[in-house]
Amino acid sequence: MMTDTTQSRGRVEIDDVVIRFKGKQGTVTALERTSHVLEPGTFTSLIGPSGCGKSTLMNAIAGFVTPAEGALRLDGKPITGPSPEVGVIFQQYALFPWFTALNNVRFGLKQFGLSKREEIDRARAALDEVGLAAHADKYPQQLSGGMKQRVAIARTFAVEPKVLLMDEPFGALDAQTRLVMHDLLLGIWRKHKATVLFVTHDVDEALLLSDHVQVMSQAPGRLIRHYHLTQERPRALSRSGNELLEIRDEILGLLHPKTMLADTL
């Protein structure tokens, strides 16, 4: 079958998707009818109040959840379940505690049927990329939270996914470690050029990292505002111009409509 090369780089189509869950009190709509396209190689942040369905949308793109209506497509092909083309970074790392850092990375490489030598070399290279070459033989429980998430990033990027979904990946880390992780993530993303969807509840994080910020409403979630950010990276809210600060105020206003921003800022 012919593959259009311009279309095989991680274009995600969210086409009239509705997601519902069956709960004890009947069916609950987790995501209202949503249509959107993630262009290849772009970095999009999804931000919204907790429980608004942002993780639900992410889980649907990952293939963990099947939409009630509409369709999800990756490069034109329907998404029917989890696949190595769509990598996922979980908030709780999801590293296998029975494997060393190196073997966690090798786990994803097994599917390629490489020689053992080649598999180990590639896994080491991936760990080197996140600055953990020296910790390859440690078990996850011997690593700090930031280091665990680095292993998870190495494990996912080593498989070369077209799309990378990140569900509040740095939510459990302290502020200092977060900043380091932002640099690390942007560096690796630039190199691997995956399409990134980054779920967060931290406005600053979204503004520092993304090409696009999508703001979601309270549950049942839908996309209510889109910002296209073109500021040079690395960004800092203090020196990337007033525009980011204005957007920040607007987003905070959207997320907390009832609080008086004048008081909190």
Partner: peptide
Amino acid sequence: RAARTLGA
């Protein structure tokens, strides 16, 4: 989920 997205 992690195993499945890693192509196991």
